[in-house]
Amino acid sequence: MLKWIGASLILLAGTAFGFLQASRYERRPKELRHLGNALLTLETEIVYGVSPLPEAMSRIASSVPKPVSLLFADASARMRETAAERTAADSWSEAIHAVWPRLSLADSEKASLLALAPTLGLTDRDDQAKHLRLAAAQLRTEEETAREEQRRYEKMWKSLGALSAALVVILMY
């Protein structure tokens, strides 16, 4: 009886681990696309809308889906805190560092987002637009590779978790 309970627990844990790993591969291309769209929207806000940065950020935060919107909401909130005396670059990089654990993106995307910080809100409109477009292009190439990886590894992790759990159960039986 106890043996069966333990076996089912191991099976459950192994399957859950496999699905967790698979979901990471599933979320990555989606978040990359949302982030790229958000950066292009920010470019439009800066070039054509001429809206102040905190306002533009909060508008973007309400228009993109959840995990990516946190980044823009956080940056906007940090920029609005007048008592803290941060520059826009500071709030942007601080927001990236704060929100990063909740996104499933890699370090190269973090670097290309952090590279935006010195231009954001400091240089003229055309320069900011160029940097935003560069970052969006980098994200798009990353998205392609992420999609490729998803196709290859998502199914593998799903079956591998359950199979290795079954192996452990049989070895311990």
Binding site: R152, K155, M156, L160, L163, A166
Partner: peptide, 13 residues
């Protein structure tokens, strides 16, 4: 089970 894991891993390169 080892054969199944082998085929899964081999299919994914």
């Amino acid at each position: 089970i080892v054969a199944m894991i082998h085929t899964v891993l081999k299919q994914m390169g």
